[in-house]
Amino acid sequence: MTTLLWGVLPYVTFALLVAGLIWRHRHDRFGRAARSSPVRESKLLNIASPAFHYGILFVLVGHLVGLFVPESWTDALGVDAHTYHLFSLYGGTAAGVVTVAGILLLVHRRRTDAPVLRATTANDKVMYAVLLAAIVMGVAAKLSHASGDGYRYRDSLAPWSRSLFTLRPDTELMAGVPALYQVHTVLGMALVALVPYTRLAHMFSAPVRYLFRPYVVYRSREPRQWGQRPERRSRERLGG
């Protein structure tokens, strides 16, 4: 069981992520959008969307620092374990609260606004369930081990996650991790695997190149656009 969860599952997740991204790129570039719905409802979206997105970006940065910056580096900078814990506790909780508030508002909007609900697919609902569960479990795990120096995930979770990249997963490290953290990790992996197959795929569309290109874009007709275009199967049939 330990090997399956902490030695196999991460690689399955990674394979699904990469395969999904390749599939999207080759067969369904059209479907790689957030399918936002401001035309249907914009007041709540105006508040909830930035809250959620900025929150989750901060959370992402927190995860990257927590998992991939070894303790020896922060020690070298003179940050002791307690300071680190407080920083991660308050910073993480603040970002977590903003994110949770954002996503709750978004889910509320999706449920109560009839036009928005009608634009919601089964795929979206699964994605929302996993996303919400992962976020809630993460906040729960953090807050239930808040006392003292907190749970020292930097001695178990973080080295384990780094060991994945050397292709020698140290599954023993995960044995003693509290259940909440374990559940959160599994949900997190599920979420990563879902990214290319759901509307989350839009996270790979950050328009960084906009900063460097001229305002007006000229393009010539491409020879492969002459005549009929090959039919492409989209992920979902869009009504026609």
Binding site: A34, R35, H202, S205, R221
Partner: peptide, 22 residues
């Protein structure tokens, strides 16, 4: 996203549906 462009040959302004991210 750089999905919209002005076509060089005839000046028509178009949206590349594959690049548009909404």
């Amino acid at each position: 996203s750089g999905a919209m462009y002005k076509r060089a040959e005839d000046g028509v302004v178009l949206v590349d549906q594959d690049r548009c991210r909404g």
